[in-house]
Design a protein around this nucleic acid. Structure first.
Lengths: 150, 150
DNA sequence: GTCAGTGCAAACCCTTTGCAGAAAG
DNA sequence: CTTTCTGCAAAGGGTTTGCACTGAC
């Protein structure tokens, strides 16, 4: 994952972004036609590891000054998820989070404030993989550590 | 958990149920006012360990001949979850599953057919509990093993 | 008679869909 | 030009809410 053009020194996440060229590169690597809207969303998403709901993506894009419709955000996020650019994280029945970090890791979910954070411990994994049901293949393992407070 | 009145020998889940008295007992143990609708839902739910969506609970209750409204099913399931009679399982962004088995265990989720099953392996657990974020307390750990096929 | 519980329908929210218009090559 | 993508608005599906009615002590 190339983050060579990461804009440093900015504290406002809406000003932080990937260069347009880097975003286009990421899209093309995954055989995604780099349209204007997809580029803008990619620039925002991959500026840093983060967990955003579709709604938050929409807000961020709009605050960056570009117009993208809600439907396009949903379409784009589904496409990115399908192509492996982002990972869907399902922890809240009311919305899906998209994780811009697709490397193998798990999550804390704060049920009080709805914030999702990565579990840094690299050692976190299962003691043993259970035997899968007859005729099924592994698709993935999600570990959610729910916490409350603060 | 008392399942002494489990009706044996029935293959149709809609005919299988807990005795009314046992259901009332379970509700009272959790300080839940045992109303008629709650009793019926409890009889259905706790006849066996199962994973039902609110919609499925509604269908099952209706097939058993009793009338319960959709709103009451949702209210009841939320109440049961809050009181610890059932456990909410969030694996599918489109609906919540309620697990009538509240003992500590984890799940397989078949993304192809949407079926949720318990992971029997008692050894399944984390190699190590990660350090929780500052100021938070553990609420629970959910492990979802997603599988596909069959 | 009082108060909790219930039923119904409407409201809600997130997400998807249909289709006409716009963009890209 | 042709194909793909986008925008808008409407529909969809699960869930919640408001409020009047019912029912149990």
């Amino acid at each position: 994952m190339k983050l060579t053009s990461f804009t440093e020194g900015k504290t406002n996440m809406f000003e932080t972004s990937l260069s347009k060229a880097a975003a286009i590169g990421m899209l093309q690597e995954k055989d995604i036609n780099p349209t204007q809207q997809r580029i803008v969303i990619a620039q925002l998403l991959f500026s840093q590891p983060q967990h955003l709901s579709a709604d938050q993506v929409l807000s961020c894009v709009q605050e960056s000054g570009t117009h993208v419709s809600k439907a396009t955000v949903y379409n784009t996020m589904s496409l990115f998820a399908e192509k492996g650019l982002v990972r869907e994280v399902i922890v809240d029945p009311t919305k899906v989070f998209y994780d811009s970090n697709t490397s193998h890791h798990h999550h804390f979910y704060n049920v009080d404030d709805g914030k999702l954070t990565d579990i840094m411990d690299e050692g976190l994994s299962l003691e043993q993989m259970p035997q899968l049901p007859e005729g099924t293949a592994l698709d993935g393992v999600d570990i959610i550590v729910r916490v409350r407070g603060q």
